[in-house]
C-alpha cells in the first residue's frame, strides 16, 4: 500500500533526523582539532579530549553534585509520586481530587522558567519568614527537582495501576489482610516496574535540568548542566563532545541491556503460558 510506503519513508528520515546530530557529536569527540567540526585528518582519531575531560576538576565536581542531586530528587519524587499515583488510581472520588490531579499534570507542561522563578521566590519568601532554607544550594535544587519530577512518577504509577484490576486489592482484604499489608504485599510488588522506571525518569530529568537549577542554585552549587550551558553559550567545545559521547554511551548501554532483559522475560512468560495451555488440552 502506498500509504505504508510513505509513512515508512517518513520514519526512516525522522530517525535519521533524531540520530545524525548525536552521531556527529560522537564522531567529532575523537577529532584532534580545536575547531571541533573541521576534521584533522593527520592526528585523528584521538582520545585527548577524554583525557582532558577526566582531569577537568570543575566538571567532575559538578558531575558529582549532579549525581547526588538527581539521586536524592529521584528518590523523593518516587515516594511522593507513588503516593499520588495510588491516590489518583485507587482512592475513588474525594474532595480535592480535581486539584490534586491538576497539580500533578500541570508540571508536566509548565515552562521551566516559570517553575524556576516561582520556586526561587518561594524559597526567598520562606527564608524571610522562617529562616529556612537558609540560602540556596543543593537542598533547594533537590526540593525543586522533587516537585517537578514527582508528576512523571505519578503518571507512570497511575497508568500501571490502571492496568490492574482493583479486585486484586479487594481480594487481599477479603482474605484478611489489613490495608498496610495489602499495600506492601500486593500493590507495591505490582507497581515495582513503574517505580523503577519512574525513578530513572526522575533521575534523568533532574540530571538534565538547567533552567530550574539556575534559578534555585546558590553561587556555590553548580550542577553539570549549568557548567555545560555556560561553556556552550560561548560556542562549541571539544571536551563537551567527549562528555556527550560518554553520556550517550552510558544511556544506550543501560537501555539496550534493560530492554534485552525485558524482552527475554516477556518471551519466557509467553512460552510458559503457551506450555500451560498446551498441557491443558
Amino acid at each position: 500500500m502506498n500509504r505504508g510506503y510513505f509513512s515508512r519513508t517518513g520514519l526512516v528520515i525522522g530517525l535519521a533526523f533524531l540520530y545524525l546530530p548525536i552521531l556527529s557529536m560522537v564522531v567529532f569527540s575523537f577529532n584532534n582539532s580545536r575547531l571541533v567540526t573541521v576534521w584533522d585528518v593527520a592526528h585523528s582519531p584521538t582520545l585527548k579530549w577524554y583525557v582532558a575531560l577526566l582531569s577537568n576538576q570543575p566538571i567532575l565536581r559538578a558531575a558529582w553534585l549532579s549525581i547526588r542531586v538527581a539521586a536524592s530528587a529521584a528518590t523523593g519524587a518516587v515516594v511522593l509520586g507513588t503516593l499520588v499515583g495510588i491516590v489518583l488510581a485507587r482512592f475513588g472520588p474525594f474532595r480535592g481530587r480535581t486539584l490534586l490531579s491538576a497539580m500533578t499534570t500541570a508540571p508536566l507542561v509548565m515552562p521551566e522558567v516559570i517553575t524556576g522563578l516561582s520556586l526561587l521566590l518561594l524559597f526567598v519568601a520562606l527564608e524571610q519568614l522562617i529562616g529556612w532554607p537558609r540560602g540556596r544550594g543543593m537542598l533547594t535544587i533537590i526540593l525543586a527537582h522533587i516537585t517537578f519530577t514527582m508528576s512523571y512518577v505519578a503518571v507512570v504509577v497511575q497508568s500501571r495501576l490502571a492496568g490492574f484490576d482493583e479486585s486484586l486489592e479487594e481480594a487481599a482484604m477479603d482474605l484478611g489482610a489489613r490495608p498496610v499489608t495489602v499495600f506492601f504485599r500486593i500493590t507495591l510488588p505490582l507497581i515495582v516496574p513503574a517505580i523503577v522506571s519512574g525513578w530513572l525518569l526522575a533521575f534523568t530529568i533532574s540530571w538534565d535540568d538547567v533552567v530550574v537549577s539556575q534559578f534555585v542554585a546558590g553561587p556555590a552549587s553548580t550542577t553539570l548542566p549549568m557548567v555545560i550551558f555556560s561553556k556552550v553559550r560561548l560556542g562549541v567545545s571539544p571536551d563537551v563532545n567527549a562528555l556527550a559521547t560518554l553520556m550517550v554511551l552510558i544511556v544506550a548501554l543501560g537501555i539496550v541491556i534493560s530492554s534485552l532483559w525485558m524482552h527475554a522475560m516477556s518471551k519466557r512468560r509467553e512460552r510458559e503460558s503457551q506450555l500451560a495451555i498446551a498441557a491443558n488440552q
Binding site: 530517525l15 533524531l18 540520530y19 545524525l20 546530530p21 548525536i22 556527529s24 557529536m25 567529532f28 575547531l35 571541533v36 567540526t37 573541521v38 530513572l200 534523568t204 540530571w207 538534565d208 538547567v210 548542566p225 555545560i228 550551558f229 556552550v232 560556542g235 562549541v236 563537551v240 563532545n241 562528555l243 556527550a244 553520556m247 550517550v248 544511556v251 544506550a252 543501560g254 537501555i255 530492554s259
Partner: peptide, 25 residues
C-alpha cells in the same frame, strides 16, 4: 526504543549538537 532513547540522553547536549551542525564552518 529508538524514539525514546534520545530522550534519555541530555537535552542540553542534543541542542548543543546542532551548533556543530549549523554554524558557518
Amino acid at each position: 526504543m529508538l524514539i525514546i532513547l534520545p530522550f534519555w540522553t541530555s537535552f542540553l547536549l542534543r541542542v548543543y549538537a546542532w551548533i556543530g551542525l549549523l554554524k558557518s564552518n
